[in-house]
Amino acid sequence: MNNHHQPARGKPRVALITCGELADLDPDDRLVLAPLAARGVRAEPVVWDDPAADWAAYDLAVLRSPWDYMPRRDEFVAWAQRVPRLANPADVVRWNTDKRYLDELSAAGVPTVPTAWVGPGGSWTPPADSGEYVIKPAVSAGSQDTGRYDLADPEHRELAVAHVRRLSAAGRVTMVQPYLTAVDTAGETALLFLAGRQGLAFSHAIRKGPMLTGPDFGVDGLYRPEEITARTATEEQLAVAAKTLAAVPGGSDRLLYARVDLIPGPDGRPILVELELTEPSLFLGHSAGAADRLADAILTRLESET
């Protein structure tokens, strides 16, 4: 490989970006280390906010598990802009780490969960109906600060208002969505896409079981445990994913990976819940060959950087 921005030193070097709590990477991400080594790539975990990290020393920096950035999102976005050869790119990080991107995708014709937004310092009055709702911050991951509320229950109504008030007082944007009850039976489908020679290509899909059981009382750790199983994607799900990726600002051909999370809506058709382009779990261990496909995607991106 002729690397024009690095001194010649043999194998290309890749940083797999993580956080201090997962300094040796999430176990699922470690599955790509051997396939990368087999392809002649030196990969190593690097904590994103480590002041000693020399990002210019890497041929590619791949965002994987920097899951502690949420309280410091502005700092994280500014950091991403300083990292050369970052995957996914810094402008994608800025756009995708605030879930108000859902409004843009909805305007582009992507079926999304109806969402109401409450700005910092704002107040919220629960709707008169007695359905279930999800409340969470616009900058979040791993179901942190996320709760499920049955507005037919007076206590839940009070807790929901308190949840919004707590986020609002902290200067955070709150999102309020109807709870899609199909997740309790069908679960959530995550479709994983990885870069190929002709842009993003579908890799595999998994099913996530329901995670929200009630109001938010705080959660310890970076994320809640998930019930994950392999799943076969349907043509309808793949079509919604393709429409979603086509609406990504700047085009999806620049992406190393993408995860499209879908849940059946009231009519049974898939609805976008989240588009994960910054630091999604890729569930490599749930599909044969997925770690090799990610290694190939990284190799393809390395070649495009030369």
Score class of each variant (00 low, 15 high):
residue 3 N to E: 01
residue 6 Q to E: 11
residue 6 Q to N: 12
residue 8 A to R: 11
residue 10 G to E: 15
residue 13 R to K: 15
residue 14 V to Y: 10
residue 15 A to G: 09
residue 17 I to R: 00
residue 18 T to G: 06
residue 18 T to P: 08
residue 21 E to T: 14
residue 24 D to L: 03
residue 24 D to P: 01
residue 25 L to H: 08
residue 26 D to V: 15
residue 28 D to H: 14
residue 39 R to P: 04
residue 40 G to Y: 15
residue 44 E to G: 07
residue 48 W to L: 10
residue 50 D to M: 06
residue 51 P to K: 05
residue 57 A to V: 07
residue 59 D to N: 14
residue 63 L to D: 01
residue 64 R to G: 02
residue 64 R to D: 11
residue 66 P to I: 03
residue 68 D to H: 03
residue 73 R to S: 07
residue 79 W to A: 14
residue 79 W to G: 03
residue 82 R to C: 06
residue 83 V to Y: 09
residue 84 P to R: 07
residue 86 L to E: 09
residue 89 P to T: 01
residue 89 P to Q: 06
residue 90 A to M: 12
residue 91 D to S: 10
residue 93 V to A: 11
residue 96 N to F: 08
residue 96 N to G: 08
residue 98 D to F: 14
residue 99 K to F: 01
residue 100 R to T: 14
residue 107 A to S: 13
residue 109 G to T: 08
residue 115 T to G: 07
residue 118 V to W: 11
residue 123 S to K: 07
residue 125 T to R: 10
residue 128 A to R: 08
residue 128 A to S: 15
residue 133 Y to L: 03
residue 133 Y to D: 00
residue 134 V to K: 01
residue 135 I to C: 03
residue 140 S to W: 09
residue 146 T to G: 03
residue 147 G to P: 09
residue 148 R to P: 02
residue 150 D to T: 11
residue 150 D to E: 10
residue 151 L to S: 08
residue 155 E to V: 15
residue 155 E to F: 01
residue 156 H to M: 06
residue 159 L to F: 02
residue 160 A to Q: 05
residue 166 R to L: 08
residue 167 L to E: 00
residue 170 A to N: 00
residue 171 G to I: 02
residue 171 G to W: 06
residue 172 R to T: 02
residue 175 M to A: 05
residue 175 M to S: 02
residue 175 M to W: 04
residue 177 Q to C: 08
residue 178 P to L: 05
residue 180 L to C: 06
residue 192 L to N: 04
residue 195 A to T: 00
residue 200 L to Q: 02
residue 200 L to A: 02
residue 201 A to R: 15
residue 206 I to C: 11
residue 206 I to A: 13
residue 206 I to M: 12
residue 206 I to Y: 06
residue 208 K to S: 06
residue 210 P to R: 00
residue 210 P to Q: 03
residue 211 M to F: 11
residue 214 G to R: 01
residue 214 G to C: 08
residue 215 P to T: 00
residue 218 G to H: 10
residue 219 V to G: 00
residue 221 G to P: 12
residue 223 Y to S: 07
residue 223 Y to A: 13
residue 225 P to D: 12
residue 229 T to Y: 03
residue 229 T to M: 02
residue 230 A to T: 14
residue 232 T to E: 10
residue 233 A to I: 09
residue 233 A to R: 05
residue 235 E to H: 10
residue 235 E to P: 07
residue 236 E to P: 00
residue 237 Q to G: 06
residue 237 Q to I: 04
residue 239 A to V: 01
residue 244 T to Q: 00
residue 245 L to K: 08
residue 245 L to G: 08
residue 250 G to I: 05
residue 251 G to R: 12
residue 252 S to G: 04
residue 254 R to M: 10
residue 255 L to I: 02
residue 257 Y to P: 00
residue 258 A to M: 03
residue 265 G to K: 04
residue 267 D to I: 15
residue 268 G to W: 11
residue 270 P to Y: 04
residue 272 L to R: 04
residue 272 L to P: 11
residue 273 V to A: 08
residue 274 E to A: 09
residue 274 E to Q: 06
residue 275 L to M: 05
residue 278 T to Y: 04
residue 279 E to R: 01
residue 286 H to M: 12
residue 288 A to S: 14
residue 293 R to N: 01
residue 294 L to H: 01
residue 295 A to E: 05
residue 296 D to C: 12
residue 298 I to M: 13
residue 299 L to S: 13
residue 304 S to F: 02
